[in-house]
Amino acid sequence: MTIALDRPAASRPRRGSATMKFIGRLFREKPLGAAGAVIFLVFLFCGLFADVLAPYGYNQISPINRLKPPSWQFLFGTDNLGRDVFSRCLYGAQLSVIIGFCAAGLATIVSVVIGVVSGYIGGRFDMIVQRMVDAWMSFPDLIVLIVVVSVVGPGLLPIILVLGLLLGIGGSRIIRGATISVRENMYVTATQSMGASTFRILFRHILPNVMAPVIILFTTRVGFVILAESGLSFLGLGVPPPAPTWGGMLSGSGRTYMLQGPWLALAPGLCLTFVVYATNVFGDALRDLLDPRMRGTR
């Protein structure tokens, strides 16, 4: 479970059984979310083992097989250079999953740190932090992305950092709002009256109670980041070729040869749609299941 606390040994259920029980509940109570999780895992698996699964190299050119439609030999057909689209999609999953997870993870961490601290401390500190967030949010995302990437140069790391910070700072608003409403609860004062430090209150008492928006934020961000990376690649500012990304495949050969070979655009486009959809429904299911009010019920 995400909100794993350092439970004392005496009461700790065997971790394996608790996880299994949770997965069981996911499938029983949230079949759609479970489907999302499965789809996502399939893509994750494909991405991680692209080297083994891909029948061809992602940059393996075969001039005699240019623009071949899908067949048993080339599952998703080939592109204008005769590269296997299926293999490229698999390798693309690798990049998209890395970017999606790292940037969304970074964004969520940034959001939680800024949002929880700013919301809990409040007062003048909150005012100053929020005005800085306002200033940052007043820049259109894409402009900041383009500027930074053109200065630093395209590559995996700058994209992850920029997307992570960009979304993280904007998303901190949501977490701040949730924190403020949690902060007003009597149990926060009660915890204070027990002698807990601010740090302890933040981590043990506020954070678990804002976990629902945090999970939602993370899963929607995964989809958003994958799309944003595709957008950047589409503009030629993504991970540079010949590394295959879904966005790059859509924009490059996909667009140019759309009429001669629609599969060039369809394959990466469908991959994108599936992953984004899967993370979203999985996130929703996770939020519902991790709601403390529903926990412990049979």
């Binding site: 609860n185 004062t189 009660a190 403390p292």
Partner: peptide, 25 residues
């Protein structure tokens, strides 16, 4: 004062419905 709170002086609040954290046992 933190070492006194909850240790040597404890407090009970008026709303039992909201003075326990819903996320923890």
């Amino acid at each position: 004062i933190r070492s006194i709170r909850g240790n040597r002086i404890a407090m009970i609040f008026q709303e039992p419905m909201s003075s326990l954290n819903p996320a923890l046992t």
